[in-house]
Design a protein around this nucleic acid. Structure first.
Length: 597
RNA sequence: GCCCACGUAGCUCAGGGGAUUAGAGCAUCGGUUUCCGGAGCCGAGGGUCGCAGGUUCGAAUCCUGCCGUGGGUACCA
């Protein structure tokens, strides 16, 4: 809607230049933007770029164009020129018409761009040897929201999760558990399964470090010591036994994973996320070899004398990359090739999005080039949604040192805070115990998810566990609170008829109303940009700005009891519309809106 | 060494060619409730936009170099 408006203005301005100065210009050189707050107007045409045609001083050109536009475009009410900026004020009728139409149905909330295109989004994808921590949470929130954002843009989206359920990580926990006496279970200890397994992972790391230290003191070189430490050797043995299908090892492996999955599914449920399909590395890791063989046949890869298989990426500015070890076993990237292939068989997707931390930027660059070489039809639609780590004030979060913020603990803590603040405010009379529990959970999730998603994914972010996540200011609960105001207004206004396009506005629009309308009109653009750039933070920041604009509007003239019924109808419809956009924007972030809080 | 990302107020972050005064939140200080919900609203103080060049009518924004931080550069995942 705005993009069409902007191009209308640009075209009219280009026409003006043609008729007034007899010069043909490309309309797109005249950029249109929102008028800055301190000036009068809604949208601004920048006329500086015309300077190079030597038509005169920019302010004079601005005047000429302004006069022309006000004649030609019936939605332009007035204009003013400051330096090379032509500020255009839209008519009240324009805004009235916008509101009446946009607020009707939900066409305004959806875009068609991705219609007919299938996208697979892989996110979360944990190693199953430890609890989900704050870093996973950032991943999950990004993955879940990009899924919804793409859907709202018309794509058919399939969210999937890949469990890295085998390999050295889980084997370390297994070894420590066996060393400790093969006794503890989640049931016997009362410790949730992922944490229990994670504790053994920490135990392993401690044991391993001590052994290495000892060897070094005995004069063994560090590199050697890491390989020769008894626990390191034990893990290698576990890996081999696992591959050979050793009964005892397989049983323990299944058992430990089941503890972890049980806990994960509980956490997933709590976070309100679900996947369409779960993939397991243990079922995929052997398929890589076939894929590599195909590439070998087609000439995309090459074989060295020792039997190892490589891909040459020097043409793309990278180096040679190993795909298959000389002993025939696969490496990390081999599995990813296979996984992409399996996924294509499952979904026939046009695009594939991987939500993975930015320490793997290079890995995905390589993977995407390889998939392209192999000629996959979806290789043009690959995207790595890369995000920065969540750091603690003490540095990186490290599971192996037990230095991580557990997702469930954090949520417990935040629900408590939400409860305290809500009770203090006392707006929840009449809600039963269960509804209150849901509400606290909702507020806690909103604070946490919003905190994680509002920052540009590319940037690292800092989390201080000693300072709990805010619920005031630029936060999820702030936006929820603004929404509950719209809900409250709605409850109290059953008799107010909605505003229709044919109704007159008895008063000229107030500044706060215009700002709010402008913000709302911009929603489809933000929705598109968030999808095009795979950046949910754009939606988050938009929702915040919208809530702020709404609060200013709310603190202005009365919505329901204004002097004229037509004005009340208009303000009421505006309030409701703002509420539904807030709700939709937050839904895209995986946050639901309470009606009261 | 080479490659990538990041560097904006005390702290956490927006803005990513455009306006004189670079915006928010937190923290600090002040105002605001007989009136639709004060988790709010209004205001004050606080900035060499890492540094130096360049491109441009115009640079926090684009380019180059340097500095700082983090990550990558494994027959690890």
């Amino acid at each position: 809607m705005i993009s069409k408006l902007f191009s209308d203005i640009q075209r009219a301005a280009a026409d003006a230049v043609k008729t007034q100065y007899d010069i043909d210009i490309d309309p797109s050189i005249l950029s249109v933007q929102e008028t800055r707050k301190e000036f009068e107007g809604d949208y601004t045409l920048v006329v500086f770029p015309l300077a190079k045609f030597k038509l005169g001083a920019p302010p004079v050109i601005g005047e000429t164009l302004g006069k022309f536009l006000i004649e030609k475009l019936d939605f332009v009410d007035s204009y003013n020129v400051i330096k090379g900026f032509l500020n255009l004020k839209m008519t009240d009728a324009f805004w009235g018409s916008f509101l009446a139409h946009a607020a009707e149905g939900d066409a305004f909330l959806r875009r068609e761009e991705g219609k007919g295109q299938k996208v697979v989004v892989e996110y979360c994808s944990p190693n199953t040897n430890k609890p989900l921590h704050l870093g996973h949470l950032r991943n999950i929130v990004l993955g879940a929201s990009i899924t919804e954002i793409l859907k709202a843009n018309g794509y058919q989206v399939h969210p999937v999760c890949l469990f890295n359920d085998r390999g050295t990580a889980i084997s370390k926990s297994m070894h420590a558990w066996m060393v400790a006496g093969k006794e503890d279970t989640p049931e016997s200890t009362g410790i949730k399964g992922d944490l229990l397994v994670g504790n053994y992972y920490v135990e392993y790391a401690k044991l391993n470090d001590i052994e290495i230290q000892q060897l070094i003191e005995e004069g063994v070189k560090e590199v050697e010591a890491k390989k020769k430490a008894p626990s390191s050797l034990a893990v290698q043995e576990i890996l081999i036994k696992w591959e050979n299908g050793d009964k005892e090892i397989r049983a323990l492996w299944e058992n430990m994973n089941s503890w972890v999955y049980k806990a994960y599914h509980h956490t997933f449920k709590r976070l309100g996320i679900s996947f369409e399909k779960l993939y397991y590395e243990s079922q995929l890791y052997q398929l890589g070899k076939e894929a590599v063989m195909k590439g070998l046949e087609s000439g995309a890869f090459y074989k060295k004398d020792d039997g190892s298989v490589w891909v040459d990426l020097t043409d793309e500015g990278l180096d040679h990359k190993l795909l298959l070890r000389s002993n025939g076993t696969s490496v990390y990237i081999t599995q990813d090739i296979a996984t992409a292939d399996v996924r294509f068989q499952d979904y026939g997707m046009d695009r594939s999005v991987y939500v993975v931390g930015n320490e793997q930027d290079y890995h995905f660059k390589v993977l995407f080039l390889i998939l392209k070489k192999l000629g996959y039809s979806f290789s043009e639609g690959l995207h790595h949604l890369s995000y920065g780590m969540v750091d603690l004030p003490t540095g990186k979060m490290k599971s192996r040192e037990g230095k991580a913020v557990d997702a469930d603990d954090l949520l417990d803590q935040m629900e408590q805070t939400a409860k305290e603040v809500t009770e203090e405010l006392g707006k929840t009379e009449g809600m039963d115990e269960e509804a209150l529990g849901t509400l606290y959970q909702n507020i806690a999730l909103s604070a946490l998810k919003y905190f994680l998603v509002k920052v540009d994914p590319q940037k690292r972010m800092l989390f201080d566990p000693n300072e709990s996540v805010d619920i005031q200011g630029h936060t999820g609960p702030f936006i929820q609170y603004a929404y509950t105001r719209t809900a409250s207004i709605k409850r109290k206004a059953e008799t107010v008829a909605p505003f229709k396009d044919n109704l007159p506005l008895e008063l000229p629009l107030q500044e706060n109303e215009r700002f709010l309308l402008r913000r709302l009109a911009n929603y489809p653009e933000v929705l598109q940009e968030a999808a095009d750039q795979y950046t949910p933070s754009l939606i988050a920041n938009y929702a915040y700005e919208l809530a702020k604009d709404y609060n200013r509007f709310y603190h202005g003239d009365k919505i329901l009891h204004s002097a004229h019924p037509a004005t009340s109808a208009f303000r009421f419809t505006l309030s409701n519309f703002a509420g539904s956009i807030m709700k939709e924007a937050m839904r895209l972030l995986g946050i639901s809106m309470p009606e009261r809080m």
